[in-house]
């Protein structure tokens, strides 16, 4: 019971805090826009993870990187 009361108090604390915000509203809007732009636009279209996208397993990724580290030795 005490646990529930505590959770309700915490919920009310955050709810009241968020509803009474003034500058905070604008800041949250900025934060959400930023996250949207980053994760839905920049990451998807401009910054794909190269190894995650091109290889399926860690073994393949490790082999690829090892290949990159040793591809120069023949010409050195």
């Amino acid at each position: 019971m005490k646990m529930i009361e505590m959770l309700v108090k915490v919920f009310t604390f955050f709810r009241d805090g968020f509803t009474q915000m003034t500058v905070g509203r604008t800041l949250w809007k900025i934060i959400f826009i930023k996250f949207f732009v980053m994760f839905a636009v920049l990451e998807v279209f401009f910054f794909p993870n190269y190894l995650e996208t091109n290889f399926e397993t860690d073994k393949q990724r490790g082999d690829y990187v090892l290949e990159q580290l040793t591809r120069t030795s023949a010409t050195n």
Partner: peptide
Amino acid sequence: ACGIATGIILEFQFGTNWSN
């Protein structure tokens, strides 16, 4: 709030430009 997530782009770049 202005600074939040500006560092995340660095992590994106690790995966894209600096994968090795």
